[in-house]
Amino acid sequence: MDKALIKKKIGIRIAQELSDGDFVNLGIGLPTEVANHIPEEIEVFFQSENGIMGVGAAPKPGSEDKDLINAGGGYITVKRGASYFDTCLSFAIIRGGHIDMTVLGALQVDQHGNLANWMIPGKLVPGMGGAMDLVTGAKRVIIAMEHCDKYGKAKILKSCTLPLTAKGQVSLIVTDKAVMEITGQGLLLKEIAAGTTIEELKACTEADLLIPDHLPTFGD
């Protein structure tokens, strides 16, 4: 499937998890797609951890403000009702449990809710930035990612093998193939993408899936 369509499908599905008045932090990359699909009847405030609540749309070319960027370094605008604060307060908002939902990408995630998304030893060490704080502090952690890596290998594992970002903090995983919830009993398959069979899904998922009798579809 086309990458843009995959992004859109995941973004639309995660946007359905939002409630009116939520305070939300979106990671860079695929998670930013969620902002394009907020249901019209609700209002959501997006935080950027460098120090703003109420991130607006991207500025028109030529009207960028050099003092107004998001945590990815991109220029932004503010929406009505926005506020600025220092980065320490921004992380107090995150670590103090005041963020309703964060959406992040993953290198690996496992059936115990462990997440690895900040380094590949010997290859890629960009630093964790605010990811560890976000995953530990947000009320709900939703992982947005393609179901398999670019070689078709599973990223949803029995147990993460890469260095962890946080232990046992992931709530929900949304991919192009499935919606899965981490529960006390294990990884519960909640929805399957239209056109994907359970056999196909199992073949590219290493984690044990709890499969209910009634399985709704999404993304059709």
Binding site: R95, M132, T136, G137, P163, L164, A166, G168
Partner: peptide, 10 residues
């Protein structure tokens, strides 16, 4: 005192 980093290399 913080929970951030518990269970990781941090």
């Amino acid at each position: 005192l913080t929970e951030t980093g518990l269970g990781t290399v941090v």
